[in-house]
Design a protein around this nucleic acid. Structure first.
Lengths: 209, 209
DNA sequence: CCCCGAGCTGAGCAAGCGCTTAGAGCCTTG
DNA sequence: CAAGGCTCTAAGCGCTTGCTCAGCTCGGGG
């Protein structure tokens, strides 16, 4: 039986897997604080007070401030990898799968840009052993996109002279959405996802003649 | 007569305009430290010792640690704006000017990725009045690229349904180079610049039929 | 020869940091 | 109702932070 992990529409809630509730409140508070000020500029007192608790309460649920960051980074990277492998393994032509990968990945970076900012820009603040773990997940994300491009080239759908370089560029374009996306701005996450899927398809498509 | 501002080949040296020499040494040390660990995680003691001085020496040349960041950010943004306006105002077709803008802008982000990382990712650490000044420079950079795209659409060279959105995507793609570029990696700044110029041209080119 | 201002250092201050500890409150179990 | 365990708080420890200040050094002008 699932509880907090699932919402009515069946989509997984952002931090449903974090239990108990006090630990989740602290983690959500940490995501907001890290995204706003950065990991190093955020104090444990700030996190605790956002969660409505005393500074000491944090250490009942997490050993260190870095463990909080690691949990956030791990969950976020799992989600990112899930989105990209789902698109890579999905049905359809390489173009359809690439468009879906970019659309969904960008949508996640825009919709959850608070989380994504921490996930993408605080890697250096992780302890060495945690960083190598996360880097492994990132390599698998890279492989998923590279596979789609490779399939498209093989099937003659795409014209991509430099597959690794283009993979890097596509992922880079999507990731940077977390930096500039503003929830109060004019574009919705869906609109940005659609725009970016179109731009990426243009980057890789074989020219008609 | 120019001195430290110019090298033998006529290209401007990175921090030539910073005088006297001790102030420049401190600034270069700060760029390295900020890029490696981030502004908030860098101590004034670290900056001073990298420059071979005592912590107190920093405050003879700069009022605060934030003033150092502001000077770095200002010089970096001036350079970025100069690169983009030079390309926008240069001769040739819109496609040639866009390719040159991306090539030069990416090359700068790769070659000087230490500086670029501080310039692009430490905006939030600036004091409010310094931030608004820098945001103004960034808007002018945005306008330079938008102008090239607008010219290309007007002349029928480009097919760009969403000019502001595509401007954002092009700049975003270039800026993110500072995050992932590794000087020890396989690609040279020139190679990345050429690859990215090609990818961006594909994004905006009218399809042949 | 002495003085002087500029550049720099050693020592250190007040504030804030991550984290610990002793114990209070309260829910569960028998 | 008593015992035990879990969650949380108030207080604070040891340390580091950005920054200050009295004084040392040293090249150039009277």
């Amino acid at each position: 039986m699932r509880t907090a992990e699932q919402t009515a529409d069946g989509e997984s809630a952002p931090w449903g897997e974090v239990e108990p509730e006090a630990a989740r409140r602290l983690l959500v508070a940490a995501v907001e604080a890290f995204a706003e000020r950065g990991y190093h500029a955020t104090t444990t007192r700030d996190i605790a007070s956002r969660a409505g608790m005393s500074p000491a309460a944090l250490y009942i649920h997490y050993k260190t401030k870095e463990e909080l960051l690691h949990r956030i980074s791990r969950i976020g990277h799992d989600k990112a990898l899930e989105i990209l492998t789902a698109a890579a393994d999905g049905g359809g032509t390489a173009a359809e799968r690439l468009a879906e990968a970019v659309r969904a990945f960008v949508r996640w970076h825009a919709e959850r840009h608070t989380t994504a900012r921490v996930v993408q820009y605080e890697l250096d603040a992780l302890a060495p052993e945690h960083r190598t773990e996360i880097v492994g997940l990132r390599r698998r994300s890279d492989a998923a996109v590279r596979r789609i491009l490779g399939d498209g080239v093989r099937d003659g759908e795409f014209d991509v002279p430099d597959v690794p370089g283009t993979t890097l560029a596509v992922l880079s374009l999507c990731i940077d959405v977390a930096r500039w996306f503003n929830a109060a701005g004019r574009r919705t996450p869906e609109e940005v996802g659609a725009l970016y899927a179109d731009l990426v398809l243009r980057m890789v498509s074989a020219q008609k003649e």
